[in-house]
């Protein structure tokens, strides 16, 4: 029975992140629009966009290879698997032992690797510019993310995300300098990896802001829908990760019972809403930076992460 419940929770979690992620995007867009004193589209607009894209035919460039057609599915499933392994409303997921935090980071890396390859596949200049910049950003963001992972696992004694969440939830960790540094690092990485302002602008197709949008410029129809969905999943994943690690309150423990699960779900929705709201406020309040300033921004994240680990190597109580 316990096993069945665990599997059910895991399955529900997989569907939950998939179902929620367009809503999160719509919510962030709505808040941004309201902050700019526009009315904005409905929060359900991303769902309509996805449906429209899914029903359209795909137009492939003549120089596109089989890789171009496979990559959307690969990227989507890698990100989905990664998102399914981040605890949202309940810790102790049934398959949490399959991949730990390092593996989740690397799964996102796989998705990025193949998307960057797809950007080069057609042989148009915009795809290349996007791939090249995406890999530049990743070359600093991924180590910074790993530094954050190290900080957490040095504190909790494990790299298993569910165990980390359990530890932070129950053991009264309190305020730690290293955790604060790790949170800042993760926040910066989340901004960069999801292509938000100030690193990239998800709302424009202007050449100078083009990273993610340029990379996927040649995609259309269902392929584009999958890639947009994967991007939304990735944003949800990062917000869930921030919520699960730094604000674990309300999350249900393993086999806690239905009421705890419901409470956890409500808490998770509230955390996502707050996270999305803060993201929109941050994005509205800051200007896009030049591409070659991004390395300083991300270098700061790397250094903060490294500092966090150094503190933990020196003393376990910092």
């Amino acid at each position: 029975m316990a096993l069945i419940i665990d599997w059910l929770v895991q399955g529900f979690q997989m569907l939950l992140v998939l179902a929620l992620c367009p809503l999160l995007i719509g919510f962030v867009r709505k808040v941004k629009a309201r902050l700019l004193r526009r009315r904005g589209a409905s929060v359900l607009q991303p769902y309509r966009d996805l449906r429209r894209l899914l029903l359209k035919e795909v137009v492939l460039a003549e120089s596109a290879s089989w890789l171009f057609r496979v990559v959307p599915y690969l990227v989507f499933s890698a990100v989905w698997v990664a998102a399914a392994l981040v605890p949202t409303f309940a810790s102790g997921l049934a398959f949490n032992w399959t991949a730990d935090l390092i593996a989740i980071v690397a799964l996102l890396g796989s998705a990025r690797f193949f998307l960057a390859l797809a950007g080069l596949d057609v042989g148009a200049s915009f795809g290349g510019i996007g791939s090249s910049r995406e890999m530049m950003i990743a070359s600093l963001a991924e180590p910074a993310m790993l530094m954050m992972v190290f900080t957490l696992s040095l504190l909790a004694g494990t790299t298993q995300l569910s165990s980390v969440a359990q530890y932070l939830l129950t053991d009264g960790v309190g305020l730690r300098v290293s955790l604060l540094l790790a949170m800042l690092a993760l926040f910066i990485v989340a901004i960069a990896e999801n292509g938000r302002i100030p690193v990239d602008n998800p709302a424009t197709h202007l050449e100078l802001t083009m990273v993610h949008e340029a990379m996927v410029l040649e995609y259309s129809g269902r392929h584009l829908a999958l890639i947009e969905l994967a991007a939304a999943l990735k944003l949800t994943l990062y917000l869930s990760l921030l919520a699960c690690v730094f604000t674990p309150w309300g999350m249900a423990e393993a086999q806690a019972g239905w009421s705890a699960y419901l409470l956890g779900l409500l808490a998770y929705l509230a955390k996502l809403a707050v996270g999305g709201f803060l993201l929109a406020v941050f994005e509205t309040g800051i200007a896009k930076m030049r591409v070659f300033r991004v390395d300083e921004f991300l270098g700061a994240a790397l250094m903060l992460g490294l500092l966090g680990i150094l503190l933990l190597f020196v003393s376990r109580s910092l």
Binding site: L54, L55, E57, V58, L60, E62, E218, S220
Partner: peptide, 21 residues
């Protein structure tokens, strides 16, 4: 996802020249 999309949504593809803005 491939199965669902091909069954329920669309499976048409057309070749054209690259978009490249």
């Amino acid at each position: 996802s491939a199965l669902l999309i091909h069954r329920l949504a669309s499976r048409d593809a057309r070749r054209g020249s690259a978009w490249d803005c």
